[in-house]
Amino acid sequence: MNIKINETVKITKLKNNKNSKLAKFFYKTGTIIGTKKIKNKILVFIIELKDYSRIWMLKKEITTLSRYN
């Protein structure tokens, strides 16, 4: 799966299902607006939701919407 900037994605998994702050983002859609490196080696994607809030997610936690079409 090759994810690009401005691509629409859906949050499909959460690494830690016990985190209630992240649970509200489950199955929401958003647009990839950038990338970020955490721990100097892990690349994550910055997602902007419809309400303009932003969250970063791992590649394995999101799916492009083109897969659903």
Rank of each mutant, 00 (worst) to 15 (best):
Ala23Arg: 13
Ile5Met: 05
Leu43Lys: 09
Arg54Phe: 06
Gly34Ala: 02
Lys36Phe: 15
Ile47Tyr: 02
Phe25Gly: 07
Glu48Trp: 07
Asn69Asp: 08
Lys10Glu: 05
Tyr27Phe: 12
Lys18Gly: 11
Ile3Thr: 00
Thr35Pro: 00
Gly30Gln: 02
Ile62Glu: 04
Tyr27Trp: 10
Leu43Cys: 02
Ala23Lys: 15
Tyr27Val: 06
Asp51Asn: 15
Phe26Asp: 11
Asn2Gly: 03
Glu7Ala: 02
Lys36Asn: 13
Thr31Asp: 06
Ser20Tyr: 12
Lys36Ile: 14
Ile42His: 11
Glu48Gln: 14
Asn2Gln: 06
Leu65Asp: 01
Gly30Trp: 01
Ile62Lys: 02
Asn16Thr: 12
Gly30Arg: 00
Ser53Asn: 15
Phe45Gly: 06
Lys15Asp: 13
Phe45Ile: 07
Trp56Ala: 15
Asn16Gln: 14
Glu7Trp: 00
Asn17Val: 13
Glu7Pro: 04
Glu61Lys: 11
Ile62Trp: 07
Ile55Asp: 01
Lys24Asn: 00
Leu58Arg: 12
Asn40Val: 04
Thr12Asn: 10
Ile32Arg: 02
Lys18Ala: 12
Lys15Phe: 08
Lys39His: 10
Ala23Pro: 05
Ile38Val: 14
Glu7Lys: 00
Leu65Cys: 08
Ile42Leu: 08
Ile33Gly: 06
Thr29Tyr: 06
Thr8Trp: 01
Glu61Ile: 11
Ile5Pro: 01
Ile5Tyr: 04
Leu65Met: 07
Asn19Thr: 10
Lys39Asn: 11
Tyr52Ile: 13
Lys36Asp: 09
Lys4Val: 01
Leu58Gln: 10
Leu22Asn: 13
Ser20Phe: 09
Lys59Phe: 08
Thr8His: 01
Lys60Val: 10
Ile3Met: 04
Asn6Gln: 06
Asn6Trp: 02
Tyr68Trp: 06
Leu43Ile: 08
Leu22Ser: 15
Ile3Phe: 03
Lys15Ile: 13
Thr64Ser: 09
Ile3Glu: 00
Ile42Cys: 02
Lys4Ser: 04
Ile46Val: 14
Ile33Thr: 12
Val9Met: 05
Ser53Glu: 13
Lys37Phe: 14
Lys37Glu: 05
Glu7Tyr: 01
Ile11Glu: 09
Leu14Tyr: 11
Glu7Asp: 04
Trp56Glu: 14
Glu7Leu: 00
Lys36Met: 12
Ser66Tyr: 03
Gly30Ile: 02
Met1Ile: 07
Gly30Phe: 00
Lys37Gly: 00
Ile33Val: 11
Thr29Glu: 14
Ile38Gln: 08
Lys60Gly: 12
Thr63Gln: 10
Ile42Gly: 07
Arg54Cys: 10
Tyr27Gln: 15
Thr12Met: 13
Lys10Gly: 00
Lys60Asp: 15
Leu14Trp: 14
Lys59Tyr: 11
Phe26Asn: 04
Ser53Asp: 15
Leu14Met: 15
Gly30His: 01
Tyr52Thr: 09
Ile55Thr: 15
Ile55Ser: 12
Val9Pro: 03
Ile42Ala: 06
Ala23Gly: 09
